[in-house]
Computed example of a mutant assay.
Amino acid sequence: MEIFLAHLEHLEEVSRLFDQYRTFYRQPSDLKAATQFLQERFQKNDSIIFLASDRGKMVGFTQLYPSFSSVSMKQVWILNDLFVEETSRKKGIAKLLMDAAEDFARQTKAIRIVLATQTFNLAAQSLYKSRGYTKDDEFEHYTLHL
Rank of each mutant, 00 (worst) to 15 (best):
Y21H: 02
D46I: 08
K74F: 07
M58Q: 11
M1G: 13
L5P: 04
M98V: 01
N80V: 01
Q39A: 07
T62S: 12
Q27W: 00
T119F: 06
S130F: 08
L82D: 00
E102N: 01
T35C: 09
A105N: 02
L122S: 14
Q36N: 09
F120W: 13
R89A: 05
E140Y: 11
T143K: 13
T134Q: 06
T143G: 03
V59K: 00
T87I: 10
E9C: 06
Y21L: 11
G132D: 07
R26N: 13
A101E: 02
F104I: 02
K135C: 03
W77Q: 07
K74Q: 13
A116W: 07
V14I: 14
Y25D: 04
L146N: 05
F120I: 10
K32E: 12
M98H: 08
S29I: 00
A100I: 05
G92Y: 06
T35S: 11
Q20A: 15
L5H: 14
M73H: 02
Y65L: 12
A6R: 04
Q63D: 02
L5K: 15
A116I: 10
A101W: 00
K129Y: 06
L146I: 14
K74W: 03
D99V: 05
T23E: 08
D19R: 01
T117E: 08
S126G: 11
R41N: 07
K109Q: 15
D19L: 04
E85L: 13
L146Y: 09
L64V: 06
A94S: 15
K57V: 12
W77D: 05
Y142H: 09
K57D: 11
Q125R: 04
D19N: 12
T108I: 10
R55Y: 11
I49S: 02
F4S: 15
E12Y: 07
F18V: 08
T87C: 09
D46F: 09
F37W: 01
L127C: 04
H7T: 12
S88C: 13
